[in-house]
Design a protein around this nucleic acid. Sequence first.
DNA 1: TGTTAGCACTCTACATAAACGAGTGCTAAC
DNA 2: GTTAGCACTCGTTTATGTAGAGTGCTAACA
Lengths: 352, 352
Amino acid sequence: MDLDDRKAKILRAIIQNYQETGEPVGSRTISKYSDLNLSSATIRNEMADLEEMGLIVQPHTSAGRIPTDKGYRLYVDELMEAKDQEVTEMKDFLIQRVDRVELLLKQMAKLLAMNTNYATMITGPSYNNTKLKFIQLSGMGDHKLLAVIVVEGNIVKNTILDLDRDIEPQDLLSLNLLLNSNLNGLTLNEINLGIVKDLEEQAGEFGGLVRKILNAVADAIRNDGGMQIYTSGATNIFKYPELSDGQTASELIHTLEEKDQLRDLVKQSLDEDGKEGIQVYIGEEMPVQTMKDCSVVTANYELGGGIRGTIGIIGPKRMDYVKVMDTLKTLMAQLDILFRPVVEEPEDERGE
Amino acid sequence: MDLDDRKAKILRAIIQNYQETGEPVGSRTISKYSDLNLSSATIRNEMADLEEMGLIVQPHTSAGRIPTDKGYRLYVDELMEAKDQEVTEMKDFLIQRVDRVELLLKQMAKLLAMNTNYATMITGPSYNNTKLKFIQLSGMGDHKLLAVIVVEGNIVKNTILDLDRDIEPQDLLSLNLLLNSNLNGLTLNEINLGIVKDLEEQAGEFGGLVRKILNAVADAIRNDGGMQIYTSGATNIFKYPELSDGQTASELIHTLEEKDQLRDLVKQSLDEDGKEGIQVYIGEEMPVQTMKDCSVVTANYELGGGIRGTIGIIGPKRMDYVKVMDTLKTLMAQLDILFRPVVEEPEDERGE
DNA sequence: TGTTAGCACTCTACATAAACGAGTGCTAAC
DNA sequence: GTTAGCACTCGTTTATGTAGAGTGCTAACA
């Protein structure tokens, strides 16, 4: 059996209605509120077909129908139609260029959560493709060495190394010179084994130290070894009864709080990269078990200068995919406009 | 009517029993499980008195009694008895001295949440009383200046300043020297107007710049102007039915997520400073409306070198105050041991 | 005078049953 | 192919009854 135009319309009507009410939708409702001008009986026949095709189900015999994961999938892939809507003005927020990437991200997450009424997450940027601007080593006494690393976009990171002994100021000076003249302008990815080895040799007696420093630098830039994730609007899930019962809500919020599993999700999303950079996971498609009653829409953002990350919106399976995807697209576009003509003056971040 | 010994024992029994079960406790229960050897009828008479005194209430006519806020207050202030208990071993966690304060704090919050089964919060430290170790200025080109600030305890902060023009390397060098020779060893609080003015004069043509730098430094150290708060274990509240219904849970988690109101709470807690540095807020005593079904126990921690903050445990009003307060005390003591013998450079070694 | 046994009473929680209604599938007629 | 009609299903609501926990009060007891 194939999905003719009428069936598609009915499926779309069911999904949209269910989106608004959260209640199973019956044949009479569709008959009355759609522009198909068909009696409920006809709708019923079609619905039986749709059910046979696995696109909708009845929660129980005498109830209306709700979409299945497969139904949502079809809708997202082929049936969605852009509906006019007030493009939410985030510009005001973003325009006041926050000077810290971290803060900007948190604000974006919060803003999106308020705008959409869903939960949101956003990863801290990865700097793997960002160019090194300079490294500055300073002795701290006490056998400790402070390394401050500045990358493109004026992001500042720092790390402290424990050494066997203190280093003489003039040695420090030449080390600084050595590192900067060799690494300046390279991205983290480009600092490979070959270069490290090369530097080690040039450094002579400080070879081991150079290696140690570079490792620490790599660690620091890789954002403390683990991907940072910020979440916001977790409590929005209480707006959707199907997610509000103790068990589900607790698990869900725990997942959002712990963030470990979100990390897996983000990794997968980075691998797949859907159309227009937007990715949709529906229910059981989700790699995260505790979120199988949810859908997640993810997008990859770019702040210019190789600073990239992922942003995600988490809601019930009946989330308003059109609105969410539009909002994300708008946001991405605005980020692009704001950060594309990088006049080399944007964010800085202070390490801790 | 006054609270004689027997009434006190009964009240204590009621509170402890309610703590464990979460159910209103009846006269028969007390009669059987307490060491008073009284019949339920006698207990009933006493309970009627306790109710008249406003220490306990019946949720409804044919139910047992539960403590009121006033009852809890009396218990916390006078009736609590230390019960032997496994002092939870956090040492293992803490011993692996994380070198980033932020991470340490997050870990502590998480650990406490796991140990107590309540939600926790912890403020980032304030560095107002921490001594400056050194400041390092570096030109970044493009009219930008990077200031890296290191304070006692090897906390590193940094900030970027926008200037009218770039500064010559030798000027930078003398500025660095000027700042460090004058500010080294001072706390943020000690860097007052007088010193700033003094430095400004010494700096000659760079006077304005010095002022700008010092302001930025102060901002950076003050932790971005706002108190950082980390929370953990928010989902623990679902373990307590009285907090688990949609409305309450949602509000509570929202409060924990947003943190604004927690900030007020912390401020108040810093002002009051209860006995042994521990503060207890019960129900309606709470300055935060959304937490009026909860109790919060706060303590002020110190990591040595003037690094201070507040830690708090949020649970139902029937929380195990004894355990919570013990745990906090233990933690504080362990922090003390771990951070007290901070071996500073000799010159800094004047006890505070 | 303090304690206790006994009892009537209250109120919640739970179970059962009946009534309701939304929605269906099927059939027959258009 | 569409639709009206109808019997049927099943969850939701409402009413009713019952069991049990716990109380307050009274009267008897030590």
